[in-house]
C-alpha cells in the first residue's frame, strides 16, 4: 500500500514538474523531437532500401538450358539432381513447346517467324528456372547445375548479380550503422539537454535530500519525468512519419520512379516505426534523467 502511494505521488509530481518547468521541458522535448525525426527518416529509408534489395534478390533466377538430345528420362534425372541441391528454394521446368507457345502469344513478330519452324528446326531449348535461397552462393549453385549431364548452358546474370549483391550488402551495412549511431547520438544529445535542465534544479534536489528523501525517492520522479518528456517528444515525429509515409506511398502508388522499386506497405510498417520511436524516446529520456540526477546525488 505504502509503495503504491509513493509511486502514485511520484507519477503525479513528475507530471506536474514537466509543466511547472515548462520552458526547460520544452527544450528537452524539442531536442527529442528533432533527433527522433532524423532517426525516423533514416529508419524508413534503410528499411525501404533493404526491402528493395530483398525483392530484387528474390527475382534473380538461374536458367539452365538443356541439350535438345536429352531424353525424358534424362530430364527427370536433372530434375532430381536439382532437387537435391541445398541452395535451391524452388524450380520450374519449361519445355521448349511451352516457351515457343508463350513467345508466339506475346508478339506478332515472333508469331510470324516461329510458326514456320518445324520441331527440329526450333532452336529453343528445354529449360529449368531455379531460384536460390542464398543469393551470395548463386555462383556455386549455377556451377553445380552446369556440371550436370545434358545441361548445355547456365545463365544467371553473372557479374551483375554479384555486383548487385555487393552493393546491397554495403548499403545495408551503412544504413544499419547510420541508424545505430543516430540513436547513440540522440541518446547523448537528449541526456545532455536533460542534464542541463536538471542542473538548474540542483536546489530542488538539495531540498529533497534535506527533508530526508532517500536517493531512490529523488531519482524516481526525475526518471519518470524523463519518461514523460520522451513520450511527449516522440508525438510529433510519430505523426510526421505516419502521415508523411502514407502520403508518400499514396502519391507514388507504392513505387518510386519505376515499378522495379517498390515501397513497403504503410500498414503495419508505420506502426512498427512509431513503436520504435516512442521506445527510443522513453529509453533516452529516462537514461538522460537518470544520468543527470545521479551526478547530483554524489554529495
Amino acid at each position: 500500500m505504502r509503495v503504491f502511494r509513493i509511486l502514485g505521488r511520484n507519477i503525479r509530481d513528475s507530471f506536474k514538474s514537466v509543466f511547472r518547468n515548462f520552458s526547460l521541458s520544452m527544450a528537452s522535448i524539442s531536442s527529442i523531437t528533432i533527433t527522433l525525426l532524423v532517426v525516423s527518416i533514416s529508419i524508413v529509408l534503410s528499411y525501404n532500401v533493404n526491402n528493395f534489395a530483398v525483392l530484387v534478390e528474390k527475382d534473380v533466377t538461374i536458367v539452365a538450358f538443356i541439350e535438345n538430345e536429352a531424353t525424358d528420362e534424362e530430364l527427370k534425372q536433372i530434375e532430381e539432381q536439382i532437387n537435391t541441391l541445398q541452395n535451391v528454394e524452388s524450380y520450374e521446368f519449361q519445355s521448349k513447346e511451352d516457351i515457343t507457345n508463350d513467345m508466339i502469344k506475346s508478339s506478332d513478330i515472333f508469331k510470324n517467324i516461329m510458326e514456320g519452324w518445324s520441331l527440329d528446326e526450333n532452336p529453343i531449348q528445354n529449360t529449368f528456372l531455379v531460384k536460390v535461397t542464398d543469393i551470395e552462393k548463386i555462383g556455386d549453385t549455377a556451377t553445380l547445375i552446369g556440371e550436370m549431364e545434358n545441361v548445355a548452358v547456365v545463365k544467371y546474370g553473372e557479374g551483375m548479380v554479384e555486383q548487385l549483391v555487393k552493393v546491397f550488402e554495403v548499403v545495408e551495412k551503412i544504413s544499419l550503422i547510420m541508424v545505430a549511431s543516430l540513436i547513440l547520438v540522440t541518446a547523448f544529445l537528449i541526456s545532455n539537454t536533460i542534464k542541463i535542465t536538471i542542473f538548474s534544479r540542483k536546489t530542488e534536489i538539495g531540498i529533497m535530500r534535506l527533508v530526508g528523501a532517500s536517493n531512490l525517492n529523488i531519482k524516481i520522479p526525475f526518471i519518470l519525468e524523463g519518461l514523460f518528456l520522451g513520450i511527449l517528444g516522440s508525438i510529433i515525429p510519430i505523426i510526421i512519419t505516419s502521415y508523411g509515409y502514407m502520403a508518400l506511398f499514396k502519391n507514388f502508388n507504392g513505387q518510386l520512379f519505376s515499378p522495379f522499386i517498390k515501397l513497403i506497405d504503410p500498414s503495419p510498417f508505420v506502426y512498427y516505426v512509431s513503436g520504435v520511436l516512442i521506445l527510443i524516446g522513453i529509453f533516452v529520456g529516462m537514461i538522460g534523467s537518470w544520468r543527470a540526477v545521479r551526478k547530483h546525488l554524489k554529495i
Binding site: 502511494r5 509513493i6 511547472r20 530526508g212
Partner: peptide, 24 residues
C-alpha cells in the same frame, strides 16, 4: 529558507511527509 519555488505552501510542507508514503 530553501523552499520549492514552484510548489505551494501546503505542498512544500506536505512533501516532507509524502516521501515516507504517509496516508493522505
Amino acid at each position: 529558507f530553501r523552499l520549492l519555488e514552484k510548489s505551494t505552501v501546503y505542498e512544500n510542507v506536505a512533501f516532507a511527509l509524502e516521501i515516507f508514503g504517509a496516508p493522505k
